[in-house]
Design a protein around this nucleic acid. Structure first.
Length: 575
RNA sequence: UAGGGCGUAGCCAAGCGGUAAGGCAACGGCCUUUGGAGCCGUGAUCGGAGGUUCGAAUCCUCCCGCCCUAACCA
């Protein structure tokens, strides 16, 4: 454990684990698990759980299992299993050979179910789902009042052990249709905690399971499977999100009433929420299925796959998880924090390159025709070891349209008629003329350069207020750049007015595709996944669809842009 | 409504009876061949009201607000 970890205040879960270890519980052993249901791709909320579970295990010299909670064959698919594994590995975590499935325990769970029946603590019920809900004392809405009835026993609650055993075995033998019967724990139909009112343990589902095939037609519910799976694997601390807090008495009840080999402890923490996005598998699935995004790995998706394609690094995601902490308080973390983590990481690592997204031609009138110079450019000012590269300079260049204003507004100190600026690593240039087409649009700038400023420094000590990035027209390569913005236009997309849908909050401008971008030639041989900082613009990542002939970059995040902020204020002030 | 939780600055979050850490954001300034990065500075009496105590964000009581469960989903 590093010095930093020793002095950093630990979250409540680590405090509990530390106390348990100190007290010698579980023989001082720490064993956690990450238990995804393979019914969707992992998102950044899962990353919080992954970093917690694997992190706690690592910090206490323990282990963390990967366990797929595959108890519902109607929703689960192999594609998700593979995607989930890939995502966890990409995040940098390793479950070694401990890849488990709740379905590995179906036989044991079945055996324990018969055990409970024999103990008179479980029974087969013939009530329908609707009836069970009613008997349990479903909340009744009476105007603005809500009444909670006590719940009453099912007429099948007192069947004999023999009858229950016979019926349950016939359930397993697939003698009954879906929904005809369930196996229920016999606890207390008047219990104040609804989860304790004879919860369903098994339901009949004639569905083929991705792993067990058609071996079973009864499947355990989450409540019946989870704690026992934890017990079987020797999990010491079963960390889950807050919504399972009310299930804990049931989690404990099953373990208390079964001859389990080990006694795990469930601890709940609040899930991660991020502004301008949704973090619910159901909602994300909807976005994918309804075509609002191009797939689970669409760079606008908060999925691990989406963030990866967008250019986010595992380090940035892990840093975010570390920074947000672990508590029981629910809240929404600002997206800006994730961007900060990304910039922190990439600022130190990403190679700098020059790219012009919205090209504007500049002709240096006093520069020799046909001459080319190879100028030295620093690859990363934050990392001397990254070295330098050569960038070709010539008479005709591209600069960013936004870097020129014919009639500059206050605080704009980039290029304008008569004004001198620096071209990064090249020369000082002064704008001498503006060429427009018949519609009045600026199509070309003319300028003169000062040969004495080669490299970007003026020997006479004169200063310029701006440094622009540029690309030589003759040497530029063309590329497609996809500018991504937030997927939703409001901080909390799920907060909707009556008559509106959360999908109404989608940001119609969440992606802008630019096809005429010009890059410095060193970018010709990039590989999918490569990340760069385009100077003065932001961080960009090569898309998997990119090829040598058709380079495609995704914008991960912009650089912090104080000029944009000033502009925002100016336009806001002037309407 | 019942049961279970949560409530410390715009956001996240330390604090565990001794007199409010830190980070992000924001706003100033310095520096700068990225209006980037970096550096410096600026903000809270702790949901509310009582009480216990020499002393409370930390203990007690009541109140308020928000969230979860009320699927044969997890």
């Amino acid at each position: 454990m590093s010095e930093e970890q020793k002095t950093t205040p630990r979250d409540f879960i680590r405090q509990i684990v530390a106390a348990d270890v100190a007290a010698g519980k579980n023989g001082g052993r720490v064993h956690t698990r990450f238990p995804p249901e393979p019914n969707a791709y992992l998102h950044i909320g899962h990353a919080k759980s992954i970093s917690l579970n694997f992190g706690v295990a690592a910090e206490f010299g323990g282990r963390c299992n990967l366990r797929f909670d595959d108890t519902n064959p109607e929703k689960e698919e192999v594609e998700y299993i593979n995607a989930i594994k890939g995502d966890i590995r990409w995040l940098g975590y390793d479950w070694e050979d401990r890849e488990y499935y709740a379905s590995d325990y179906f036989a044991q769970l079945y055996e324990w179910a018969e055990y409970l029946i024999n103990q008179g603590k479980a029974y087969v019920d013939d009530l329908s789902a609707e009836e069970i809900s009613e008997y349990r004392g479903r909340a009744i809405h009476d105007g603005d009042k809500i009444i909670t009835p006590p719940g009453k026993d099912s007429p099948y609650r007192n069947r004999s052990v023999e009858e229950n055993l016979d019926l349950f075995r016939r359930m397993r033998a697939c003698e009954f249709p879906d929904g005809a019967k369930t196996l229920r724990a016999k606890i207390d139909m008047r219990h104040p905690n609804l989860n304790m009112r004879d919860p369903v343990m098994y339901r009949i589902m004639h569905a083929s399971h991705p792993r067990t095939g058609d071996k079973w037609c009864i499947y355990p519910t989450y409540d019946w499977a989870h704690g026992q799976s934890d017990a079987i694997e020797g999990i010491t601390h079963s960390l889950c999100t807050l919504e399972f807090e009310v299930h804990r008495p049931l989690y404990d009840w099953f373990l208390d009433n079964l001859p389990v080999p080990h006694r795990p402890r469930q601890i709940e923490f609040s899930r991660l929420n991020l502004t301008y996005t949704v973090l619910s598998k159901r909602k994300l699935l909807q976005l994918v299925e309804k075509g609002h995004v191009a797939g689970w790995d669409d760079p606008r998706m908060p999925t691990i796959a989406g963030l990866r394609r967008r250019g986010y690094t595992p380090e940035a995601i892990r840093d975010l998880c570390a920074r947000v902490g672990v508590t029981k308080a629910e809240g929404i973390v600002e997206y800006e924090l994730l961007e900060y983590c990304l910039r922190q990481d990439l600022n130190k690592r990403a190679l700098r390159r020059m790219a012009v997204l919205h090209p504007l031609r500049v002709v240096i009138d006093n520069y020799p025709d046909g001459q080319t110079e190879e100028l030295d450019a620093i690859n990363n000012p934050e990392d001397e070891a990254a070295g330098t590269r050569k960038v070709p300079f010539s008479k005709v260049l591209y600069i960013e349209r936004d870097d020129f204003m014919e009639t500059p507004v206050p605080k704009f100190y980039r290029l304008a008629p008569g004004r001198e600026v620096r071209l990064r690593y090249a020369y000082f240039i002064k704008c001498t003329d503006v060429v427009k087409d018949e519609t009045g649009e600026i199509v070309e700038i003319h300028a003169t350069y000062d040969p004495a400023t080669r490299g970007g420094d003026a020997p006479d000590g004169r200063k310029v207020k701006a440094t622009l990035h540029w690309v030589s027209v003759a040497h530029a390569i063309s590329a497609e750049v996809r500018l991504y913005d937030r997927l939703f236009k409001v901080k909390n997309p799920l907060q909707v007015e009556v008559g509106h849908d959360w999908l109404d909050n989608l940001n119609p401008d969440s992606v802008k595709i630019l096809t005429e971008c010009k890059l410095e030639p060193s970018l010709a041989d990039v590989q999918p996944g490569d990340r760069f900082q385009f100077e003065r613009l932001g961080y960009f990542c090569v898309d998997p669809a990119s090829t040598r002939g058709h380079v495609v970059f995704n914008r991960t995040a912009t650089l912090r842009d104080t000029w944009a902020k000033i502009r925002g204020r100016q336009t806001a002030a002037h309407g």
